[in-house]
């Protein structure tokens, strides 16, 4: 579903990604872990077509980037630590707007379905600016799945959430992944990543330094693996 070969990203003289190789099979949930500045967000922005690679091949859902960016965007849902929502619109108005931007037919039924999924149906007429951070993040997930994407990218979705909101977000993320979507999530929260993901890739110094599946993780623990990967 995602194929990346020899990806290089430079900002001026600074090289952020240095020949990164990465692939994700359909339905896989990959947690992309790494220290601050490792290039996780840059990598996700390239996968989501918001940024162009300097070198290398990137294919998402069978389409190459940057040449087939529109086709990729139609199959992609992105959630970042910013909600990408308009505070002066209600929850349903936000979803309606994004639904129109994705050309969704039967939009009202889809809005109801999505609001149910993120447990915000009773707040559909409320302005987003009255929502807590956790509710905004759940609605942000609703926004990202409004067009039923095959691939989901989550960039630090737990940033700024309290314990309750994080647990609710866990449930929403599980339901997103359980529908067979391919998910890539960056996070600093190793405990949550371990609960949700099926594979863990460590991004360090612009490359994937190590990778381990959930089944192989049984022999060690994620924190030990993470530390070992960064030291090696």
């Amino acid at each position: 579903m995602i194929e990346v070969r020899n990806l290089v990203k430079r900002f001026g003289l600074k090289t952020i990604l240095r020949g990164l190789d990465f692939s994700v099979a359909p339905g896989e949930f990959v947690a992309l872990l790494g220290p601050n500045g490792a290039g996780k967000t840059t990598f996700l922005r390239i996968l989501s077509s918001l940024s162009r690679q300097s070198l290398g091949e990137v294919k998402v859902a069978g389409h190459s980037l940057p040449n087939q960016a529109a086709q990729v965007r139609a199959k992609l849902g992105v959630v970042s630590h910013l909600p990408l929502l308009y505070p002066d619109l209600t929850a349903e108005e936000n979803l309606r707007f994004y639904g129109r931007m994705y050309g969704i037919e039967a939009i009202e039924a889809r809005i109801t379905e999505v609001l149910k999924m993120v447990d915000l149906e009773n707040r559909r007429k409320d302005l987003v600016r009255t929502f807590s951070r956790g509710m905004q993040q759940r609605l942000a997930i609703g926004r990202a799945v409004i067009h039923n994407p095959e691939v989901m990218l989550f960039d630090e979705p737990y940033t700024g959430l309290d314990q309750d909101a994080s647990e609710m977000l866990d449930d929403v993320l599980r339901s997103v992944a359980a529908k067979g979507r391919t998910v890539v999530m960056t996070s600093h929260d190793l405990v949550r990543a371990e609960e949700l993901a099926t594979r863990f890739d460590i991004l360090s110094r612009g490359v994937i330094a190590a990778s381990i599946s959930k089944s192989d993780l049984a022999k060690t623990n994620l924190l030990a693996f993470y530390k070992q990967s960064l030291e090696s």
Binding site: I104, E105, H147, N148, E150, A177, A178, R181, I208, K214
Partner: peptide, 21 residues
């Protein structure tokens, strides 16, 4: 570097929602 297979079942199309650009 190892790549693991998914523990999720083979994905099915979530539903047949039409989203023409």
């Amino acid at each position: 570097m190892r790549f693991a297979r998914s523990t999720y079942p083979t994905p099915q199309l979530i539903d047949n929602m039409k989203t023409p650009a």
